Amino acid sequence: MTLALRVAESRDLNPLIRLLRLRSDDGAVLPGYEPGAHVRVQVTLADGKQDWRHYSLVNLQPGADLRTPREYVIAIRREDTGRGGSRFMHTVQAGDLLTIEPPRNDFPLRAGTAVLVAGGIGITPLASMAVQCRAAGQPVRLHYAGRSRALLAFLPELQDLLREDLRVHADDEAGAPLDVQALLDACAWNDTLYVCGPQVMLDAVLAGAQARGWPRERVKFELFSAPPASETEAGYEVVLSQSGRTLRVAPGQNLLECLEQNGCDPMFDCRRGECGVCSVAVLEGEIEHRDYFLSDAEKASGKVMQICVSRARGPRLVLDM
Rank of each mutant, 00 (worst) to 15 (best):
M1N: 13
L5W: 07
V7M: 06
V7F: 06
L13Q: 05
L13G: 05
L20N: 02
L20D: 00
L20K: 11
R21P: 11
S24L: 10
D25E: 14
A28I: 10
G32A: 08
E34V: 11
L45A: 03
D47I: 02
W52R: 03
H54D: 13
Y55P: 01
Y55H: 11
N59Y: 02
P62I: 01
G63C: 04
A64L: 13
L66P: 03
P69E: 08
Y72Q: 06
A75F: 13
I76F: 03
R78I: 13
R78L: 14
D80Y: 13
R83H: 08
V92R: 03
A94W: 10
G95P: 10
I100T: 08
P103E: 09
R110M: 12
V115Q: 09
V117M: 09
G119Y: 01
G119H: 03
G120Y: 12
I121L: 13
G122Q: 01
P125R: 04
A127G: 13
G137E: 08
P139R: 10
V140T: 08
H143D: 01
L155M: 12
Q159Y: 02
D160H: 13
D160A: 15
D160S: 13
L161M: 05
L162E: 07
L166V: 01
R167G: 01
A174I: 09
L178H: 02
L183W: 09
L184E: 03
A188N: 05
W189M: 14
T192H: 15
Q199K: 10
L206V: 11
G208Q: 09
R218T: 00
V219I: 01
K220C: 14
F224I: 08
P228K: 11
A229L: 08
V238R: 08
V239N: 00
R245G: 05
T246P: 06
R248W: 09
V249A: 06
P251R: 07
P251D: 04
G252P: 02
D265A: 14
P266C: 05
M267R: 12
D269P: 00
G273I: 13
V280A: 10
H289E: 03
F293P: 03
L294T: 15
S295G: 06
A297Y: 00
E298H: 04
A300D: 11
K303N: 12
M305Y: 04
V309L: 11
R316C: 10
